[in-house]
Design a protein around this nucleic acid. Structure first.
Lengths: 211, 211
DNA sequence: TAGATTGTTAATCGATTAACAATC
DNA sequence: TAGATTGTTAATCGATTAACAATC
């Protein structure tokens, strides 16, 4: 119920970076940080950092800067990391398995509830105590378990169909690794991760430097 | 030796999306496409699409639109996909293995030459005909083999060191999956992929909708 | 030729940076 | 108090959109 203006996507995309760098300062027992110091560390201008924080309210103190712990907590809250999220992975191929095994996400409070696949060779296998289940059973699973986020790791041809099924069964966030842009209704959030596009960007930049 | 102005990063990031959609049109045997049609498919405005293409020269024809095959070839060339790239993966954990297995990249002309790790349990294992080799041997490998791109999948603490080693041995592109921003000299290109940041963005957007 | 659609210039919009008064 | 640094407004910069003449 925050009285929040519309935050631009540019700002939103920077929030996780602030979060990451503040977590690091916290690990290093740094108590306070100025926008100038943060600027040198993150690579945004000090002005931009102050503007960004002020989208959400004044967290700093003139003449002092920002209290690291406090700022970290504020940004955690803004991102919604003071809550837990239940997830399911659909598609237990290379990427699905890698994400299931990736322990980094547990620490943020993400809880992997199930992994689904259609491949009989994979069904029954366990990854980190989570059994790979037949995709046929996903709908009934979603009916019985509240799932916040669906992580789509199936091939392109199946991805939109899987997303529709998730959305129809109450999932409110889709993290998509299939190489297409998944369409969702406007009460559902989507992040499309396009690894190939990132690699192609790198290749462009490499060739650009040769000019 | 193109007479190219400075292309903004916003445009560069859209190029792989054009490439992907044009490849799809090509698969579906579509011969021609107007900026308006492409606009409906990709979700950028027709005006932006024409502006973007005109950064690189006029590929279209008034009254007709764009020839799909021709435009696809142009963008392939702009991205540098008419060349082959040799790659190495450093870190054969979850993500490293997933990327090594991911066949999508082969199709673009990326050729995985080696996989390095420090873990004796992994060394000697094969992924897709590529043997996992002791990281100790990377320097001599790079001396003997031209490698274009190093894909970093090691933990955060080792990532910058690995990047430095790659750069010192002539690698000109770094694709980084470790959760930090790798620093490289300006004659080297870098793409940092931050999966956690993407997930945190999703969570923010989910909470934002609840407001 | 008439209709369609580009290439390109001009107008608008939004995001970043600069500046500085407020204040700790 | 004097020095430092925020919060915030104003100026600048860049990217997107609109418009339309050129032309296929």
């Amino acid at each position: 119920m925050d009285k929040k203006k519309d935050i631009s996507m540019a700002v939103i995309k920077r929030l996780p970076k602030y979060y990451r760098h503040l977590a690091e300062l916290l690990r290093n027992d740094v108590d306070r940080v100025s926008s100038k110091e943060l600027s040198e560390k993150i690579g945004f201008t000090a002005s931009q950092i102050r503007q960004d924080f002020n989208c959400f309210g004044g967290f700093g103190q003139q003449g002092y800067g920002y209290n690291v712990k406090e700022l970290y907590n504020e940004i955690s809250h803004i991102l919604g990391l003071d809550k837990k999220y239940s997830t399911v992975i659909i598609g237990a191929g290379n990427i699905g398995q890698a994400l299931a095994n990736y322990s980094r996400f547990d620490k943020f409070g993400f809880d992997l509830k199930a992994i689904f696949d259609v491949n009989p060779k994979l069904i029954g296998m366990r990854i980190k105590d989570v059994e790979i289940t037949d995709l046929d059973q996903m709908e009934s699973f979603l009916a019985e378990n509240k799932v916040d986020i669906g992580i789509i790791c199936v091939p392109q041809a199946q991805a939109q169909k899987v997303a529709d099924l998730l959305v129809d069964n109450g999932v409110k966030g889709i993290w998509n690794f299939a190489p297409l842009d998944i369409q969702v209704p406007e009460n559902v959030s989507i992040e499309n991760v396009h690894l190939s596009e990132s690699l192609l960007t790198l290749v462009y930049l490499m060739n650009d430097l040769d000019k």
